[in-house]
């Protein structure tokens, strides 16, 4: 019995040691790459870079604003750090990540979606694992501890045991690790300024019945974002990207500077679905955004 327990413990510790080493290597490779947005944010720009404008949000922020067009129209560097399959808490995390690298921006654009207008769910978003290489940063630790779910909380546990997170998200991380080890500059579906686009051929044919919502944007995370931008001398702009179906009307009590383009585009061929514009829609949305921004300057 004693021999069994000793041998089992020996092999278990050996296994944990190997798993620890391999996952550290994997996460280090990803940390040095540009594969996912959090690593791209760190490695694609010079330390302490001054941005004219930086966009944060979900796939809607990603699909609607073209920072190349913005950079052409406005002087200065603009980049899109929005990440698909995420919610407002992730946008705040990315913003913390942005400031933590010593970057500064004149304008911080937070793209807000309908589900996040007044509250946000306290659940982990699908692509939050992409912050795993930065799991030891205090803001990432706090985020994972607050939002991660389950008995083990694999992302939160990754601070001490990185193989929990790496193992849980293995199918999402193995391929990128392999690619990043060969080609560290490879970016996953976005350009050198973080832009992604849906091609025009995905445009829809039918227009749905419209829906109407009223809000004062009372989500407390927006308040936290506002405080963060004030501390870092940035001007906060809340951006509501175009919807095919939904109209969002802002109440007067809304305390933020908002560019509300929820009803900017009505034709279905500019949308790949009810919430994402295709490339031609993106151009319209970005031009309108630039016009509004010029008024704010």
């Amino acid at each position: 019995m004693k021999k069994f327990v000793i041998k089992s413990t020996f092999y278990l510790l050996g296994l944990l040691f190997l798993a620890y080493g391999l996952s550290l290597m994997g996460l280090y490779t990803l940390k040095r790459s540009q594969f996912f947005k959090p690593s791209f944010l760190v490695n694609a720009f010079k330390p302490g870079e001054q941005f004219k404008l930086a966009v944060f949000g979900s796939s809607r922020g990603l699909a609607s604003l073209d920072t190349k067009l913005i950079a052409d129209e406005l002087e200065g560097l603009s980049a899109n750090f929005s990440m698909d399959y995420t919610a407002l808490p992730t946008a705040k995390l990315m913003l913390e990540h942005f400031y933590a690298q010593g970057y500064r921006a004149e304008f911080i654009v937070i793209s807000v979606d309908l589900p996040d207008r007044d509250t946000s769910k306290t659940v982990i978003s699908e692509n939050d694992y992409r912050f795993l290489p930065f799991r030891n940063e205090s803001y990432v630790q706090n985020y994972y501890s607050r939002y991660d779910e389950g008995l083990v909380k694999p992302l939160a546990a990754s601070g001490s045991f990185p193989f929990f997170g790496f193992g849980y998200y293995n199918m999402e991380l193995l391929g990128p690790t392999l690619i990043s080890s060969i080609k560290p500059d490879y970016r996953y579906q976005f350009d050198e300024l973080g832009n992604f686009e849906y091609p025009d051929y995905l445009g829809m044919d039918e227009k749905p019945e419209p829906r109407n919502f009223q809000t004062a944007l009372t989500n407390p995370i927006l308040k936290e974002i506002q405080e963060l931008t004030i501390r870092n001398s940035s001007k906060l702009i809340i951006y509501i990207a175009p919807y095919l179906r939904d109209e969002i009307n802002l109440l007067e009590s809304c305390p933020y500077t908002v560019i509300n383009h929820s009803r900017l585009i009505n034709k279905p061929n500019y949308f790949s679905d009810y919430i994402h514009v295709v490339n031609s829609g993106k151009k319209i949305a970005t031009k309108a955004f630039i016009e509004e921004l010029k008024k704010l300057e």
Binding site: A19, G167, Y168, N170
Partner: peptide
């Protein structure tokens, strides 16, 4: 045992825990 160790590692890194 040594193969089991590799097998256990493959469980950690290739298992469908999600």
């Amino acid at each position: 045992s040594k193969y089991l160790l590799i097998l256990a590692l493959s469980i950690i890194f290739f298992g469908a825990f999600k």
